[in-house]
Nucleic acid binder design. Structure first.
Lengths: 350, 350
DNA sequence: ACAGCCTACCGAATCGATTCGACGTGCTGG
DNA sequence: CCAGCACGTCGAATCGATTCGGTAGGCTGT
């Protein structure tokens, strides 16, 4: 029953040529006479040979066509975020022409021999953010010569990064609210660190997740004393919960909320509706990301539009460059401010 | 500058042992004396050798530790659905102990040399659904001896399938509505085929996507003449659009809506609210999947709960079995009916 | 003291494809 | 008529790790 799969040598023998010739028929690296090509292809069809074994090819070529993407422990969580989904699409799109696909590597699971940066046959790796536990295996991978790119995170010197002008962008949105006349503004943040979950953010907590910190800084550049309520991650339900806290006391509610993501903003808007508040009449809400939020309609969010797809593509391009032996520079992408219908002057000004 | 990475032979030479001995120090397949082990490890550390090259190992072992997952052309679309996300988690979790990771293979893109079932170094492949364009490369892969598992689809004989009792489950929900007294029921379906998008479903359209057909059959078992409105896919916004159509005419609106997914149901509920209809007072809504829908709160949907994670795990187990040389049987998973607060007797009955 | 055994290690073959320099045709031009 | 060239094909080495049959050396038991 164990029928050994035909190899290229078998095909060569059947076609009465040398293995090298048979090989080039498939790879096309060297011209081959038409007659020979036909003979080889016929022999291949005959033996049911479909093409070179990718494993052998990858050993010889030193390229496996696989780019590792280090995601957190749960894809359910990661891909909840439209930004990540679009980014993955951009990334996949960009590396595809290189014959590369994306291998999902999960961290945080302590399964015995789960695949890692070191055990998987990777050509390169892309890190999304960069949490501490990763740094260890990262160094090893790096020292093995594996090209690495980091998206919105810092993996040490020499690792190209794909960054977003989070702080500037968020400052723009905050300034817009200020110019509308808002002074009583609350901030709903993404997760501040892997240790801390949600809750009011004291001044002294250490915000280790870059995105959260940068966007918070941008908001605080304009509203230095604005209270910040942290969530455990980017989702409508987290935003809803935060919004309920913000709107709980009718006498002490903000006139505007800066949410650090569109999903959070959608949740805050939902909470406002629940509390009988009109958006933007009673409360203005800004988001961040500029992604279509399923279920946000009919609102058009005032937000900072980033092209998540471009972010993925930039990472892909950086990977491609490294595979070509070049050394890509870090990339800083910009957001554009989009004014929607969820912001307006505060009640007192109208 | 091209410093050739150290190989296991280099390490062996440095430690003054044979390559075979050095190899077993890393693999642990054979006992090695403590002294030797230490010498080898020291030599490795010395040369900066981190472990066997996965590419070479995979050629020799015939195992790459990579399971291909064939997704559609857009991850953004695929992972919009919580069911898919959870399924991927279950799958990843189940294959991880085998040292396997998931490689995302996109179909529908016609990039020149994008990785495929044939060109990627896969140990096995999992298909989600099974669209026609896939069948071709699938046959080739199958003939190469690549283990394949299909989730909710049909990839021909000999390919183990992971299935759901869609029809039975949907029938249960429909019967529940009937027992509540509903007679005027509308169905909001998932995408009927890759050709057809949304719109009212005539009796004669060919529903080629199994999930859609099966759930529709289940509903029609109870309400044979219920009109069915198709959507282009599982999302809140699609459900919202469908709901608007259903509730457009106040005089001819259904008293209950059977949505083929929770996301669609959430959209329908949103549409009902928009139209000033109370749920479940004016209209009952059922979903399918039993996943947490971000933004559905505070409703608790009446729905059919499937364990998407289990579905993924079942697929993973089947893959694992095939990697072990066993032949797994197809698996039929069951949904459980969960009554929430989105269904009640029709207005006329109260 | 010798047969027999166990442990730890070695050598060489193997996985399958690719590549590059070498080689043999058959043809052209001087 | 022969040097020179172009084209197509071949051989052999290589990518790096793993495995399995075999062997040397030390130990036990009688």
């Amino acid at each position: 029953m164990t029928i050994r799969r035909a190899t290229i040598s078998d095909v060569a023998r059947e076609a009465d040529v040398s293995p090298s010739t048979a090989s080039v028929v498939f790879s096309g690296k060297t011209p081959v006479s038409d007659a020979t090509r036909r003979r080889v292809l016929a022999a291949a069809a005959n033996l049911g040979y479909i093409g070179p074994d990718p494993r052998a090819a990858s050993l010889r070529l030193g390229r496996s066509g696989i780019v590792g993407v280090v995601v957190g422990s749960s894809m359910n969580h990661l891909f909840l975020d439209p930004v990540q989904r679009l980014m993955m699409d951009g990334l996949a799109e960009e590396v595809a022409p290189f014959g590369a696909g994306l291998l999902l590597l999960r961290t945080g699971t302590d399964v015995e021999n789960a695949p890692t940066l070191l055990t998987a046959p990777l050509d390169a790796a892309v890190l999304i953010g960069c949490d501490l536990p990763l740094r260890h295996s990262l160094d090893a991978a790096h020292s093995r010569g594996l090209p690495i790119v980091v998206i919105e995170g810092d993996a040490g010197p020499g690792v190209p990064r794909i960054l977003l002008d989070n702080r500037d962008a968020q400052r723009t949105a905050a300034a817009y609210l200020r110019d509308l006349g808002h002074t009583d503004v609350a901030i709903v943040t993404l997760r501040p660190s892997f240790e801390v979950g949600g809750g009011w953010l004291d001044a002294d907590v250490d915000i280790t997740i870059d995105v959260t910190r940068e966007r918070l800084e941008g908001a605080r550049d304009v509203f230095p004393t604005a209270p910040a309520l942290a969530t455990a991650g980017s989702s409508i339900d987290e935003g809803l919960a935060a919004g309920r806290v913000l709107f709980a006391d009718p006498h002490r509610r903000p006139t505007a909320v800066i949410a650090q993501s569109d999903l959070l903003a959608a949740g805050v808007i939902r909470a406002a509706e629940e509390a009988g508040l009109a958006v933007p009449g009673d409360v203005s809400v800004t988001g961040f990301d500029g992604v279509p939020v399923d279920g946000l309609a009919p609102y058009e969010l005032t937000t900072l539009v980033q092209s998540a797809t471009d972010k993925g593509r930039a990472a892909g391009a950086a990977v491609a460059a490294m595979l070509d032996g070049r050394t890509p520079a870090s990339v800083l992408l910009s957001c554009t401010f989009r004014i929607g219908d969820t912001t307006g002057p505060p009640l007192s000004r109208r």
